[in-house]
Design a protein around this nucleic acid. Structure first.
Lengths: 327, 327
DNA sequence: ATATTATGTGTAACCGGTTACACATTACGG
DNA sequence: CCGTAATGTGTAACCGGTTACACATAATAT
């Protein structure tokens, strides 16, 4: 392995000069620069990032903490983060927290020892002060941790409103809202938006808590529909829930969208695979991930961050689980 | 940050002794051991893995190279790898290769500079010698690279046979086999197994190449079914293809499983969400990932590897896209 | 009793970078 | 023309571990 000293010798300068050239800081004369450049090329020198990390206490590693990569929402997010990270020369370490604070903490500790450059957090098991005390750049993705931490979220409230309104516009008169986990802020915003739409239109509705889990959603909805035959529209806080609801409807022999309309939330690609294909309030998942990565990298590189709150617009994707709008 | 020297001073021994104690190699007396242990606890000392990496030229990083985490087969695999890695103290770096040799190579180079401990490869864009020349532990997952590289794959051939046989047993007389990408060995094995079943039973069948992509599968199958009304059974080489086929059947108004039976391959959880739920030849995806991780770690830690070829059994999961067996 | 081996420990070099500091030279302002 | 600032460079310490080697002592073998 060629080291910086080999390069220095070959170029006839000191290691300090080589280092300065490589990092583009301090003064380096034209002559020295060309000599070093030539030596680097000739020797095929590549900088040892581990050695650099040891002195600088920095690395080009980014931690992406998410609840579970197996949940189909997250791979798309992870993909975006990774793509952007790669173009800026960062490497992503994936951390499945399983919503377990111990696991999350453990990852954070392990990676801090590696001088990780920063974290993107889509799972907040730890309390806000903990992230603040990290003394590391952090970006909250898909949820809000606090105002000091740059955040990237969808316009969940507007999405909640849109989905509800879309159902009403298409003639649903008795809605069921599948509310997400209470401790998950973004799900609450969707609920608020839903509530606003309900206030505006006067239709009957019920709300049921439901985890973001297919089989549980299927059970909950099947039971509910069995007991409440008049429901003609379901708005789910996530596509996975909506898939469960659709399944439940099928189990009960309900015609979707004729007897029952369903709208999901997320816009994951699985929605298209269902029959009928899922109408959904689509988040721009890729964009969320990409922006989160960029904001984190800005922080890492000490650039000023203009917006601490990045709210990404959502849009209604009308597919088969809703009727054509009744205008 | 407390260093090994702080510990040494506190314990009244040399850094060498502390290091030996910490790594459990070399001789350390009882007295020294207890003194060091106490000092470590008191100072809350944590070893700096970067510094260690610099000297040992090793790390506890594992690279997981896969084509695209967005493909629903891979998150389950990645999850298993990560779970196992974590319990052994390794950290996983996810690398989306996009089936692009340049990207794959780039990742490998970047991570080698970080003294990565080894790779699990589920995407082989590079030729076999390239992996061999890595001089690093490598495990091939879900595909075979060569005989020198430990491998974890499903029993794809048997799975191909099982799926085909299941269709025949359930009364399909005119089969369509959706063959996966030709350059993907595991898909070919499935094809071979399918062929063996065809040889054994005398039923008519056709084979069509089809990428592992929902929308393309949907198009290909819809076109094919439109032109060949007599097809009454489809065996897809992946669940994503099968989902496309199911969608195509719905588009054409075909009753599944009455008019057309469909069997997929993989056993990803999406299969349950479809209606009817997908009958599939399920791979034990989690087990594959878990074993791959264990085999890699064994290699890394210099333990002998008994099996270079780990073939994981598959099993038929009968759900709604097939009829009850005609016995 | 002596040779040999096993046990135990410390010093200092090393891994491959970064950078504070000292020093030299050149440019520039008044 | 001289003081000061800007430019340019090298030496050597440092980051926080590991380990070769030298040395000392205790245990065992002959």
């Amino acid at each position: 392995m060629t080291t910086i000293r080999d390069v220095a010798k070959k170029a006839g300068v000191s290691v300090a000069t080589v280092s300065r050239f490589l990092n583009g800081n301090g003064y380096v004369s034209q002559e020295a620069a060309t000599a070093v450049k030539a030596a680097v090329e000739e020797l095929n020198y590549e900088l040892n990032t581990v050695a650099r990390s040891l002195t600088t206490k920095k690395s080009n590693l980014i931690g992406l903490i998410l609840p579970d990569i197996t949940n189909p929402f997250f791979p798309e997010l992870a993909r975006a983060v990774e793509d952007v990270a790669l173009t800026y020369g960062y490497t992503v370490v994936l951390c499945n927290s399983d919503e377990d604070p111990k696991k999350e903490k453990n990852y954070i500790e392990t990676l801090k020892k590696k001088y990780i450059a920063g974290f993107i957090v889509t799972s907040n098991q730890l309390d806000a002060p903990h992230y603040a005390n990290l003394k590391l750049p952090v970006v909250a993705l898909d949820r809000v941790i606090n105002e000091q931490i740059p955040t990237v979220v969808s316009n969940n409230r507007q999405g909640g409103f849109m989905g509800a309104q879309a159902l009403v516009d298409r003639g649903s008169k008795n809605l069921l809202f599948l509310r997400g986990p209470e401790e998950f802020g973004s799900a609450n915003d969707r609920y608020i938006g839903f509530g606003e739409a309900m206030e505006k239109n006067s239709v009957a509705y019920e709300t049921v808590f439901c985890p973001f889990h297919f089989a549980e959603a299927e059970n909950i909805v099947e039971q509910y529909l069995h007991d409440n035959k008049d429901i003609d529209g379901i708005f789910a806080s996530s596509d996975v829930q909506a898939a469960g609801a659709l399944k439940a409807a099928h189990n009960l022999g309900l015609a979707v969208p004729k007897d029952l309309q369903i709208i999901g939330f997320d816009g994951i690609s699985m929605g298209e695979m269902l029959t009928p294909a899922l109408t959904t309030v689509a988040q721009d998942i890729y964009k969320m991930g990409a922006i989160a990565a960029r904001v984190l990298i800005k922080q890492i590189e000490g650039q000023p961050i203009e917006n601490f709150m990045n709210e990404i617009p959502v849009n209604l994707v009308v597919r088969g689980t809703t009727k054509g709008a009744v205008t």
